[in-house]
Design a protein around this nucleic acid. Structure first.
Length: 190
DNA sequence: AATGCATCCAACCGCTGCGTA
DNA sequence: CTACGCAGCGGTTGGATGCAT
């Protein structure tokens, strides 16, 4: 068995209080990020390092862009997801001010549903109902729908198929002209 | 107005990959 | 080369909130 990352008895869980946020923010502003495991003690927090990291990365970081996603951001997420799959950190890396958690949540709550309404399987970005994703890509060729017609629409729940078919396996079918520069690099170097 | 249901999002859990001794 | 510890990642959960009846 893997030992727990922190002593559960001595650490807080659940929502962060304002005081905790302030402690964490002040500590990181003074000492910088890193050493998450030892940070809680040094900062006087009864939290595990993981929790501190998550709180900082997803909520407290000053460069976060909070609020609704723009249409351009939506498009980019969809395109990147088609290329990268559920690599949320990579996708978020291309969206300045957005976190992987935020992108993941937004995908699961908004974009996945949106694609499904358009007749697109959000797992592999295949067109399933002769509906083209004109908002995202160029109009598709009918071969796309043919390639996916054998699954009888909902007889096979796409949600249950998330691991079986990676997006990379069929990009030639569904991603006609993304033309994205996916060189791995720092987000702010864009 | 009260209740139940649906949705959203912050946070947790467990696994993986990487660096180091 | 191997074992270990840590940071990071992705999946999942659960509380809060909004909406419909």
């Amino acid at each position: 068995m893997r030992k727990p990352c922190c002593e559960k008895k001595t650490t807080n869980k659940g929502a962060w209080s304002k005081q905790e946020d302030e402690k964490l923010t002040k500590y990181i502003q003074k000492h910088g990020e890193g050493s998450w495991r030892s940070l809680p003690v040094a900062a006087g927090l009864l939290r595990c390092g993981k929790s501190c990291r998550l709180r900082w990365v997803n909520y407290l970081r000053p460069d976060l862009k909070r609020g609704n996603f723009g249409e351009d951001e939506e498009d980019l997420i969809i395109k990147l997801h088609a290329l990268l799959g559920n690599r949320w950190s990579l996708i978020a890396g291309r969206l300045p001010g957005r976190t992987d958690n935020e992108v993941k949540n937004y995908w699961n709550t908004h974009l996945r549903r949106k694609l499904m309404h358009l007749g697109i399987d959000p797992n592999n970005h295949r067109i399933g109902h002769n509906i083209c994703l004109d908002k995202v890509n160029h109009p598709c060729k009918s071969a796309n729908s043919q390639a996916n017609n054998d699954d009888e629409d909902d007889s096979q729940d796409p949600l249950l198929d998330s691991t079986s078919s990676g997006p990379e396996s069929n990009t030639s079918c569904t991603l006609p002209d993304l033309n994205l520069d996916l060189t791995i690099g720092l987000p702010w170097s864009l």
